[in-house]
Simulated assay, not measured.
Amino acid sequence: MKYYLLLFLFVTTFTLCMGQNTSKIKGVVVNAADGSFLESVNIVNLNQVIGTTTNNEGEFQISAKANDTLHFSYLGFKSIKVRVTNDWIKFGDSKIELTELALALEEVVVNQLRLTGYLEVDIKQVPIINNNYRYSISGLPNTGYEATSPGAVSKVLGSIFNPADFLHRMFGKKPNELRKLKKMKQDDEIRNLLASRFDREMLTVLLNVDRVDLDEIVSQCNYSKGFIQTANDLQILDAISECYEEFKLLSKSRSNRL
Rank of each mutant, 00 (worst) to 15 (best):
A104L: 07
F72Q: 02
L75H: 08
Y135C: 02
E107V: 08
I123F: 06
N86E: 11
P141A: 04
K81N: 14
V41F: 00
P127G: 05
Y74H: 14
V121I: 14
E107S: 13
L98S: 12
D87T: 11
I50Y: 06
Q48F: 01
R114N: 14
V49Y: 04
T85V: 00
E100S: 11
N56V: 07
L98T: 07
N67Y: 11
A147H: 09
G76P: 11
I137W: 02
N47C: 02
A66T: 11
L101D: 04
L105W: 08
F77Q: 01
K65E: 02
I43L: 03
F60L: 06
R114C: 03
G76C: 02
Y118A: 13
T143P: 10
V109Y: 09
N130A: 14
N142W: 04
N130D: 15
D122V: 07
D68F: 03
L113A: 09
Y133S: 11
G58Q: 06
L113E: 09
L119E: 13
I137N: 07
L113K: 12
Q48L: 08
A66W: 05
T116D: 04
I123S: 15
E57Y: 10
R114F: 08
N47H: 09
N56A: 12
I96V: 10
A66Q: 14
T99D: 11
S79C: 00
G144T: 05
E59T: 12
G51C: 04
L75D: 08
T54P: 05
I62R: 03
G117L: 03
F60R: 05
N45K: 08
T148L: 06
L75R: 13
Y133W: 10
S94N: 12
P141V: 02
G58T: 07
V44I: 14
T52A: 00
V82C: 01
N47T: 08
I89V: 06
F60Q: 05
T148S: 12
A104W: 01
N142R: 13
I128G: 12
K95V: 11
E146A: 10
I43Q: 03
S94H: 14
E120Q: 13
L115D: 02
G144L: 04
Y118I: 15
I128V: 15
N131T: 15
V44L: 09
V108M: 04
T69M: 09
A66M: 11
F60E: 03
K78Q: 07
Y135D: 08
L103M: 08
Q125C: 08
V84N: 08
L70G: 06
E106N: 14
H71R: 14
K95Q: 10
G151P: 05
N67F: 06
E59C: 07
Y145L: 06
I80P: 10
N67M: 03
G92F: 04
K78T: 00
Y145T: 10
N56R: 15
T116V: 02
L113N: 12
Y135E: 09
L115S: 04
V108L: 07
L101I: 01
I137R: 08
N47S: 13
L103K: 15
V109C: 02
Q48D: 09
N130H: 15
N55C: 00
L46K: 09
Y74M: 05
D87R: 15
L119C: 10
E59N: 12
